[in-house]
Design a protein around this nucleic acid. Structure first.
Lengths: 203, 203, 203, 203
DNA sequence: TATGAATGAGGTTTCATTCAT
DNA sequence: CATGAATGAAACCTCATTCAT
């Protein structure tokens, strides 16, 4: 009966997403209950259904939102002012924030759902392959911009792919063992890349 | 059915594990039902409970079994005849087998449970940290055996850690995008390591 | 169903208790099913769980309620206007009501559970020993108030205990053989007590 | 295939009854499982079904056996050498043996089943009413043999009934509170009866 | 719009009973 | 005769979802 502003609706929708994200990562999507999420969001269970079709829909939005949070500067490297080394330092520094764990968890849940169901329309918003292609291209671009054309015996494209894989591996490691020093790992990889690609070696 | 040989019991137990592993990875642990697993194993739902305490117990055995499958030569590198490069080639070649996907899925489910619950006794069999420490030590050992003492500006320990992280990242990538060429990535990393650690560069 | 008045909730809770009490005494606690109770109460099985933790909890409330119904004026004899004889007549007259059978049944179920489990916290609300002590003290008080100090060869405390035992025996007899005339039995006991304690005999 | 002596069969049957009686009184008939009983009897679950139709049948035999154990000298008082006072002292002394609790429990279970089901053929072996009539007659006979014809204002028949009720009440009390001194209660009742029926008072 | 009581399908688990050996 | 693995019906309980207010 009461007219409510769009802003208010959007805010409530967002608060539900936040609550759900918290619950989903704490207990897993399957185990978290709508009642818990409602309680966490400070509303009634029924109210959730005004904002989301059903639990699956809500979960999907949570996962997509977290996936969104993951999309980073790498996809649009041209616009970035930073060098490859600077950007990767920044990217991995991010992983030290504890909140990242929640995104990682939801990413993994999303990945598992993705694999189980084939590639259901349900996950249309976040296509892994797409992100992979884009980020790999971004890495490649930045490496070549920083180090110039690679020597013929170094497959920079594969290195870019490997770095992307390493990124996800690092997130999983951080999730399981938060004390792991991924920054040091990045520096080590940088030094490897430097040795291989920097002219200073040949000279 | 009268007394049955131990071998028969073990075989049935194993067949339940196989069926459960299949169902769990197809639908996720939470969504797979005991009835489905029983049907897949060709027995009645009740029979499962002669072999496993309950669904959680069954899931745990599945995850532990797959975790077991993951423990590889890396943990005991001294006994291996292979060089670092050979062993890592072999390890990543393994990832091309489609069956590995199931193990990866269960590993991720296990990881999520692990993170959610803190570190419950339930997962005692497979301690991530433990495996991490051992494998990292194995990698370190093999790298130094192959390349000799590293130059002072290369943090080999961090590289070993990074490689372990890369391994899991590669598994996740393979899970989501089976066509990804992780072998090429490994080769690229090998070439990086070679450039950095081989004496031929400095000379 | 939107917010409902507390009175309505209490009424529904009570109706579940009534339905459960009926089912439990008709079939026994173990054999009665939640579905039956729900049907008897005219609600869905799931609804019961908004009012009671689980079947055991429900059974406990039923038993406690009936136990509550059993606590009688005996526990607070001082406040009663009635003499020992009047009060016991009233108490046993109660047993002629057929509904008492249900309370007796639940009392016996409760007693059996109590004995099997040791003295679990579960039955904390109704401690037998407690009731026993209080009622015995009440009987003693009323006998002495009515008949004055007993002759030295009569153990009035033991008589009070025996009367309490007789009360429960009478309930069990009534349960099994409703036609038994417990009122006559009480009168007979009264006459025995009168003969023994009344001064009129000795004089 | 093996021929087994009747004695052996009877012994096994008996051992099953003993095991079942123990389990039934420990956990209640409904909660005790056939597997437990089999384990307690040292045989396999399947074997029980060679000796008893099903669980209900087994329970019935247990209850009847314990009911049998309850039938006492009271039913045939003429043949007894003992006086009323002696026999009741003996009867209640029996209640101090802890094993009696098991019989009491099974009696109560039997009583509850009896009440729930109406009077099913199932309980044909032990008719409460029958026992009641006989024992009451026995008590009456013994009281009159000991004390002679009662004064006109004492309803000895009702007293006999009351004593029977008291007996069961005492068993229930002993079950719930083993420390209760039922012997003292009997003595107190004896003294009451003595006061009322003994000539010494009137004289 | 929001509420939250109610629904009821469906999951896990138990266990009396059977029957091949 | 005994075994004990297997069955499968049925119980308890959960929780996503609905809808009267």
């Amino acid at each position: 009966m009461v007219r409510v502003s769009d802003a208010h609706l959007a805010a409530r929708r967002h608060s539900i997403l936040v609550a759900a994200t918290k619950c989903f990562s704490q207990k897993g999507i399957a185990a978290a209950t709508m009642a818990e999420i409602a309680a966490e969001a400070g509303i009634s269970p029924g109210a959730i259904y005004r904002y989301f079709e059903n639990k699956d829909d809500l979960a999907r939005w949570c996962m997509d939102e977290s996936a969104e949070a993951i999309k980073h500067a790498w996809e649009n490297p041209t616009s970035a002012e930073m060098s490859f080394v600077e950007l990767s330092r920044l990217t991995f520094a991010e992983l030290n924030r504890p909140e990242v764990a929640i995104d990682t968890q939801l990413f993994l849940e999303r990945a598992l759902i993705y694999v189980r169901d084939g590639h259901p329309e349900a996950l249309a918003l976040g296509e892994f392959r797409d992100e992979f292609e884009k980020v790999r291209a971004g890495i490649l671009f930045l490496i070549e911009r920083q180090f110039g054309p690679p020597p013929p015996d170094v497959d920079v494209k594969a290195i870019a792919e490997a770095l992307y894989g390493f990124y996800w591996g690092a997130r999983v490691m951080k999730l399981l063992m938060p004390e792991v020093n991924t920054d040091a790992q990045v520096e080590a990889l940088h030094s490897l890349i430097g040795h291989a690609l920097d002219r200073s070696c040949g000279k």
